[in-house]
């Protein structure tokens, strides 16, 4: 005899409950929280270090760092004097909302305007786990190729901003073939509202538009 039982239950409900708790906490505190997602080596930490340094007098930023191993990234952030909490996932390919909840308790939230979560370097898995952030920021560096929005649609479909990083490599006339217009068009097909900023976190080119977007968003959350 066989018997079928209807369940209809979300499988990742435990993560979603923590994500909801985080987003409620951040909304009450009126803090902007952004979840940065990219492949390893796209320049997330370099973007953060430059952003923190150049916006120092305008926006107080704290960072939750996710990596499989080491606290190297948190050390780079702390060198800017911004507070940073490192989460070592010990092999896990993404941050979970429970880990972020714990980290939020250990950051002095009241002293901050903006909390960045730098997710584990991975263009796939982190996009499936909500952390309670207000928005996702996708980072794609030109060395990775302009076909990534088409090949890895999930993160581009879900992000508020796409930062196309390392554009100084294109201007150097080196061997990088990256069609910015193609990447922009593919990302926009997946997501009509995505804001796209081509930047170089190394030279600072294009960063001003990104900073404007951040300042506007912080202002809107503060109300």
């Amino acid at each position: 005899m066989k018997k079928i039982v209807d369940i209809g239950k979300k499988i990742l409900i435990a993560n979603e409950e923590y994500a909801l708790k985080n987003s409620q906490f951040l909304a009450e505190q009126k803090k902007l929280c952004l979840n940065m997602i990219s492949s390893p080596g796209s320049g997330k930490t370099t973007i953060l270090v430059r952003t923190i340094t150049e916006l120092k007098d305008k926006i107080k930023i704290g960072v939750i760092e996710g990596d499989i191993q080491t606290d190297l990234d948190a050390k780079r952030i702390k060198a800017t004097e911004a507070p940073a909490i490192q989460i070592e996932t010990g092999g896990s390919c993404h941050l979970s909302a429970a880990q972020v909840s714990n980290a939020l308790e250990n950051l002095l939230i009241s002293t901050l305007d903006l909390i960045f979560i730098e997710n584990v370097g991975n263009l796939v898995c982190p996009s499936a786990f909500e952390l309670g952030e207000w928005g996702k920021i996708a980072v794609l560096s030109v060395a990775e190729g302009d076909d990534k929005p088409a090949k890895y649609p999930a993160i581009f479909a879900k992000s508020k901003v796409l930062l196309i990083n390392k554009i100084d490599l294109l201007e150097a006339g080196t061997q990088v073939d990256f069609d910015i217009e193609r990447a922009k068009a593919d990302a926009s097909k997946l997501n009509k509202d995505i804001a796209i900023f081509p930047v170089s976190a190394r030279t600072g080119k294009g960063m001003a538009e990104w900073y404007n977007w951040l300042e506007e968003s912080v202002k809107n959350i503060r109300g």
Binding site: M1, K3, V5, D6, G8, K10
Partner: peptide
């Protein structure tokens, strides 16, 4: 979302 829809059991 990811959903567990149903489970089939073997009964005596």
């Amino acid at each position: 979302p990811l959903i567990l829809e149903e489970i089939e059991f073997e009964t005596e």
